[in-house]
Design a protein around this nucleic acid. Structure first.
Lengths: 224, 224
DNA sequence: CTACAATCAGTATTTGTTCGCTCATAGAGT
DNA sequence: ACTCTATGAGCGAACAAATACTGATTGTAG
């Protein structure tokens, strides 16, 4: 089971280097080069760690850090060009987990990432017993496992990655039809129905996906 | 420690009466009879409450209220000669804390002033322990949490975000019916009832949402 | 042919709105 | 201070409207 690292860095060359090095340590990476793309991406994905540069086009790393902390405790490592800037950041109490100063050695980068993950894994004895496996399009729960269709999987991903958060049908549609295609809201219902059937069978409970009247759907973790 | 009340009222006789009555309740008062004298006075003094008449020579009460809000959150009670005018004032969203209509009983005057001060003193020391979560449509208080329907949430949001501020039923309607649809005032009552039930259960107190007779509703933060 | 996506129409459910009544409040008159 | 009256507010229950679910059906790609 490999961890996904989000790299937010506008210098593409640097981002690639970071990516390469982390990959060689068996991390899966995703790059974002513009500040404004971060929050939308996080609505659908849930990385294990975020490496967040401060100087960015669009929303700055500082704004983003604050914004992310509104809804998630995902570990954030702030990346800054200047030592003095880090001092200033510490004063802001953004809620970042670590700070790293450019230029950094790649050994240091990996060390910090691993340190964070080690802390995290030892602190939380695996609260989520349900897991999404992107490579096989399966959902695992306890000892069982089900397969989802591509469509079902894309639909479920944002819901699963942001438990309790309510998604409107429109926003769910947006995540699966990149081409802005418009389908009936009943279509979403239909897929939700299939998802529910599979998931409820898996978890032996109902209401893993709940409807919120007039708003949309949300996922809540099952007992156990 | 006695509280100072600023009385802005051009009718000197009325101002004196107000002054006398408030003094008898151990408030220190200061009178100003011309609109243009208010801002200069406030640069040097800091009253606990301002009673602000609307019809004034020089700067009107409306202008003054706006101007004062630029630099201070001092409680302002607007004093108006007509009920209809209050409705208009609410629409302007001046940021006043309360409204009182001439002619008023002096008991009422004192009651309002005391209410404001009580609210202020109890609200000041603690940060917001109550939270609105837009992504999950929930209200959190201490360790508990309740869910609101879409409608209830939209209704509660303005009240919550501007504690102590009074919203008329009409202005609440405006915020939820963008299409200028008109519904009965009893409809708002009905939703307020449901909101109150949920909120009171959450906070274990009553009167988190208060009625202001003849005007509307306001939200006050519960005790911590 | 099969598996899956999309749609539709009928039904079920949830929520929003109104009604009619009672109670509360504020001001006026005695 | 006391009632009286007009108006506002609270509330339960009936009603209306909006929204969601379901199963059947059609469309489509491999």
């Amino acid at each position: 089971m490999s961890e996904q690292i989000l790299i937010v860095e506008d210098e593409v060359k640097l981002a690639n280097l970071m990516s390469d090095f982390l990959s060689s340590h068996h991390f899966v990476t995703h790059q974002i080069h513009h500040g404004n793309e971060v929050l939308p991406w996080l609505e659908i994905n849930r990385p294990s760690v975020i490496l967040l540069d401060i100087m960015l086009p669009g929303q700055s790393g500082i704004e983003l850090c604050k914004a992310i902390r509104q809804f998630s405790n995902v570990p954030i490592i702030m990346v800054s060009a200047k030592v003095e800037e880090i001092d200033r950041l510490l004063g802001l109490e953004l809620g970042a987990d670590d700070y790293i100063c450019k230029p950094f050695s790649y050994a240091e980068l990996v060390a910090r990432v691993k340190a964070i993950l080690r802390r995290l894994n030892s602190a939380e004895p695996k609260a989520t017993v349900m897991q999404l496996d992107e490579s096989t399009y399966t959902v695992k729960f306890k000892t069982s496992c089900i397969e989802l269709t591509n469509f079902e999987f894309q639909l479920f991903k944002p819901l699963f990655n942001n438990p309790n958060r309510i998604y409107s049908r429109d926003s769910l549609m947006d995540t699966m039809y990149a081409d802005q295609r418009i389908v009936s809201h009943r279509t979403i219902d239909s897929h939700i129905k299939k998802l529910r059937k599979k998931l409820d069978e898996l978890t032996q409970t109902d209401s893993v996906i709940q409807s919120v009247y007039g708003v949309g759907y949300r996922f809540v973790h099952p007992q156990g």
